[in-house]
C-alpha cells in the first residue's frame, strides 16, 4: 500500500497537469465557479464553443 500510494499520487499529478495544460480542466474550474456564485452553468458543448470563439481572435504566436 505504501509503495502504491506515491505512484498513484504521481500518476494523478501527471493527469492533473495534462488536463490543465490542455485546457480540459477549465470546464471543472468553470463548474466550481458557477457553484460558488450560485449560477446555473451552461452546457459543455456551449462552453467549449465559447472557448473556440475566443481562440479565433486571440491566436498566440509560436516561436521559432
Amino acid at each position: 500500500m505504501r509503495v502504491v500510494d506515491p505512484v498513484r499520487r504521481a500518476l494523478a499529478g501527471v493527469r492533473w497537469y495534462a488536463k490543465e495544460l490542455s485546457g480540459e480542466g477549465r470546464w471543472d474550474t468553470y463548474l466550481q465557479q458557477c457553484e460558488r456564485d450560485g449560477v446555473t452553468p451552461m452546457g459543455r458543448r456551449e462552453f467549449e464553443r465559447h472557448l473556440d470563439d475566443h481562440r479565433e481572435t486571440s491566436t498566440q504566436g509560436r516561436c521559432c
Binding site: 497537469y17 490543465e20 495544460l21 486571440s58 498566440q60 504566436g61 509560436r62 516561436c63
Partner: peptide, 24 residues
Amino acid sequence: GNDYEVTDRRVLFGHHFAAIAGAG
C-alpha cells in the same frame, strides 16, 4: 475568463515553454 486568467504557475510554465520553444 478569457485573456486574463489567474493560472497555476506550473501550468503557465508549460504554456509559456510550448510557445517559446520551436524549431529554432
